[in-house]
Nucleic acid binder design. Structure first.
Lengths: 142, 142
DNA sequence: CTCCTAAGTTGGCTTTCCCAACTCACGTTA
DNA sequence: TAACGTGAGTTGGGAAAGCCAACTTAGGAG
């Protein structure tokens, strides 16, 4: 059988390799330069260079020059990259709850003043989404 | 420098390898048996066996026997595994919006009757979470 | 007996990954 | 001007992981 066509699989084609999401985490933290990303993730430089190139060509990051003499650039998030914030939030929340032992290594405060605990809700009704609250809708005819 | 301690990295240690999240997707779809998972993901059987073993030992899945003669089992989600649903939802949403060309391969209907578009909100105030709405809170002293 | 199914294992080959060292373009210090 | 520093990668070689097809094991069905 041929594997299921699925946007999760498509997403993982782009950001599913090792170091890709960690590189993006660093960019969200404001560490937008090659050496910062390498140091904070622990990725080897050759693999990191390959991942960044792929993320740029996939439109998740863009290379922005911030100095021409000497030529230097940083990696900035595109809209697509910014939209990955949600994925990182949920991954961190899951890691905090089920993997990391002891207190969370990072804690974030939401603009409402409270410590953030992200929750996934239906954009239409605002109710929390559980696996049981979903049914598969009709497939688009292809 | 030593890499940043982070629950995203910890989470990816567990579910970040290729095929792990796709195997979990299948279990959420109700395809809980080895051959089903292999067929629907496209993973090679040896790698899939290794991934499932790892997910079981990490407490994300559990092996449940459903027949003793012949001995047969299926993979069921634990609480930890069920909590990954949010990650898959956000990954699919991102894939639908930024990677998959054309209409989404799967559409889900929420129990409220509408097509699901998941959204991440702050559990306390219910407002949508953006990268800019967050500030880093004090680190726990270690 | 022989065939069939589920759930892996095994062997052999190919592709990635990792690490340290090197390059290259430029600026700075002495 | 020579030596040194910095940012951003490349390169080379060995180790690890991945891929595929075929094999195994434990039992049931015809």
């Amino acid at each position: 059988m041929t594997p299921r066509s699925c946007s999760i699989a498509n997403a993982l084609e782009v950001v599913g390799e090792r170091w890709s999401l960690l590189a993006l985490r660093e960019v969200f933290f404001g560490n937008t330069r090659f050496d910062q990303i390498a140091a904070n993730t622990g990725a080897s430089r050759d693999v990191l260079a390959a991942r960044l190139k792929k993320l740029v060509s996939a439109g998740v990051l863009e290379k922005v020059q911030y100095s021409s003499h000497p030529p230097r650039h940083e990696y900035h998030l595109t809209d697509s990259g910014r939209a990955l914030h949600n994925v990182l939030l949920m991954l961190r929340e899951w890691g905090d709850q089920y993997v990391t032992e002891g207190p969370p290594p990072q804690v974030f405060q939401h603009s409402c003043g409270h410590v953030l605990h992200p929750r996934v809700v239906c954009a239409h009704c605002g109710e929390e989404v559980s696996p049981e609250s979903l049914t598969r809708a009709a497939q688009p005819t292809h």
